[in-house]
Design a protein around this nucleic acid. Sequence first.
DNA 1: CTTGACCCTGAAATCGATTTCATTTACGCT
DNA 2: AGCGTAAATGAAATCGATTTCAGGGTCAAG
Lengths: 315, 315
Amino acid sequence: MATIYDVAALAGVSPATVSRVFNGIAVSAVRSERVRAAAERLSFTPNRTARTLRKQSSEVIALIIPDIENPFFTALARGVEDVAQASGYSVVLCNTDEDAEKEARYLDVVVSENMAGIILAATSDHVDLTDLTRRGRPVVAVDRSLPDVDTVTVDNVAGGRDATQSLVAQGFRRIACITGPCGGPTAEARADGWREAVIDSSSDRYLRHADFRVEGGHAAMVNLLNLPEPPDAVFVANNLMAVGALRALIERGLTAPVIGIASFGDLPFATLSPRGVTVIPLPARRLGEAAARLLIERLRGDDQPRRTIMLENHS
Amino acid sequence: MATIYDVAALAGVSPATVSRVFNGIAVSAVRSERVRAAAERLSFTPNRTARTLRKQSSEVIALIIPDIENPFFTALARGVEDVAQASGYSVVLCNTDEDAEKEARYLDVVVSENMAGIILAATSDHVDLTDLTRRGRPVVAVDRSLPDVDTVTVDNVAGGRDATQSLVAQGFRRIACITGPCGGPTAEARADGWREAVIDSSSDRYLRHADFRVEGGHAAMVNLLNLPEPPDAVFVANNLMAVGALRALIERGLTAPVIGIASFGDLPFATLSPRGVTVIPLPARRLGEAAARLLIERLRGDDQPRRTIMLENHS
DNA sequence: CTTGACCCTGAAATCGATTTCATTTACGCT
DNA sequence: AGCGTAAATGAAATCGATTTCAGGGTCAAG
């Protein structure tokens, strides 16, 4: 393929001049035109690898998410993509499958590919980001907060509280909670919101930890239903587990008015879901947009202290 | 960060030797050990950008899909990822949003980032791949076939026929078809299957073209229902349009036994969907796996003539 | 006419790896 | 001991861009 040298030769200038033309650095109109013509004729595209090697940074930002099959994260990805594209960055998506090891591998790739920056919905809050930060690569945590880096989340406590309060208002009293992995800040915050709103404060017997996935939600719901005194309602801390919980309920013939159910985050393809489910909508796409904007500001040199953005819980 | 020169200096060898140690080329045990120790101490990670520049190829493969919010494609992505990771490749996902221009931009990135290869579910069958093929980058088309490159698809004609026949067997006679964009090979093939199975062969009045998305399916269904003599069943050529069609039916109070509906491809989160929908399951994940395997064989130097793999329509 | 300031330009260094090529070293065999 | 072959090693070239540095040219002010 055509290189900058080929273009230079054809245009009768030095490679440096070709580079300048493509980077908007002052070049006389005559040469500039000759270079453009030559580049056109050779259908020259600058080699990004060479450019990245020299500039020590590419125009690619990585978005690392734990579950590509969760519509919440794909919506978020759309948000990131829209903003990034508009600023000339490409987005590559990496799926960790909630696996810390895969996550670490992708973080390695980010470093060694000299990617510009990274938006991360981490598998846990003790990710090792030293390699990134040491090289000045900006990191933005999204959906799941991380110590020491810019963070964009929703108000998880308020969301959990609102969802639970809505169940209380519907007259339910024995309200269970299915939340995410033990120790995860997001999972804990949502459960905290539930604790605040639930009437019987000794109700941790109705608290279950699962894995933010359909199967986990299903298992937890089954477990709750098998209690001697099962709950009369349940607050589920994410959309996929809510799907699992709903499946468990449907299997037992339980539906809306008999048992209450509230989901943190829109149910996927909600047009297909049963009536009577309380939903706390999550602004997934706007989370992605905000994270991307934050990252791009950092890439442009913004060096304020760490910032945390908390979006309201409605689309 | 530590470079290969730093490691070489610390280990008292030449950079070439360090490179050889990391590439499994014969180096005496003594030096090899010294290099490893030095690399460890400096926490050295080879710079992939430099390596890519020199080798003219990275260890990244691009997966370009038209709609990241479609569970079919995310399942496919999982398949690709599993196989690729196992062979030491990283996968980056690019979402074109069914937009040919975005697609072209991503193809440019693939070329100029020297990515190893590319798996593509194209927006149309006249994509320009000359830049790719000229540089010997293998391309595999998945789900949507392309001229001149390896292809992995399902048997779209058979699937359309089976789905429609199942509706016929249920006693429906005025069976409509909602398929994808006019001229798209996948959309046409599925509609061809429908034509083969439908009893009244003059029934193209019941054929609608939409965009493979929820809204399009909804609009087409509404349109069909507004006909003077509406169909009594519908075959929908992809999962998202089926969701839209179902929504339209539910809005009119029409459900399973009254009107027949068959979907090509599993409904997303099917546990939530109404009963009575005929589903032709699509082996999305296996499509991804097969495509990745094919691509990796090419990357390893396989240069057989073009191959086409057609999977059966069941998971 | 001289000097200084400023703008363009090209030669060459640089980014960090891989790889070729030439050389050295080691070893086996007669 | 002498010779040939193979294996291990390092110096230097290479990939394709960007960027520094040093001139060369133009122009205005003195």
